[in-house]
Design a protein around this nucleic acid. Structure first.
Length: 155
DNA sequence: GCCAACGTTGGC
DNA sequence: GCCAACGTTGGC
């Protein structure tokens, strides 16, 4: 059973254009247990994800910019072992990793982003987690209905 | 840049 | 196991 997700990235940090260029990347750096658990327990290869840019600007507003696909099972996030890396975690060891990630593959980029402002006012998207105030989860489950609706908005 | 909301840490 | 302090996220 295919599932649907929303994955957040700061647009000026790693954007949908970067993923398009890389084709596929390990979705590292998640340091939140709820988000990690989604990747470890609930994601499967082939699941689809809305690619969301947070911390937007007037020129590049916060919102959904494209689609990615889960391209691997979960595996240890290598950045937790990398001393000096901003995501280094001294409590993690190779024998007992703490943080896991999956690989994400590029699917498509929207011609026009579906902005958070649009998502918030659209009655069809009522209940989307990203609408909730203070929603800081960087990996969120999305219903198939909401996923398809947003893809449909983009045309 | 501000600040509210939230998760995590650590003292007790 | 509580809870205050702290750091971070993320919308505005």
């Amino acid at each position: 059973m295919k599932k649907f997700w929303l994955i957040k990235s700061e647009g000026d940090c790693y954007s949908i254009d970067d993923l398009k260029k890389d084709k596929k990347i390990a979705w590292t750096g998640i340091r939140n247990y709820q988000s990690r658990n989604f990747m470890m327990n609930d994601m499967s290869v082939g699941d689809m994800a809305l690619f969301y840019h947070s911390n937007g600007t007037v020129e590049a507003p916060t919102g959904v910019y494209g689609i990615a696909r889960v391209a691997s099972a979960s595996h240890p996030d290598e950045t937790q072992f990398a001393k000096g890396d901003e995501h280094y975690d001294p409590k993690a060891t190779k024998a007992k990793p703490i943080w896991y990630c999956v690989d994400m593959a590029f699917v498509l980029k929207f011609k026009n982003p579906v902005t958070l402002a649009e998502i918030k006012i659209d009655p069809a998207l009522d209940g989307m987690l990203v609408r909730a105030r203070g929603s800081r989860l960087s990996i969120q489950p999305v219903s198939q209905k909401h996923f398809e609706y947003i893809v449909g908005l983009e045309g």
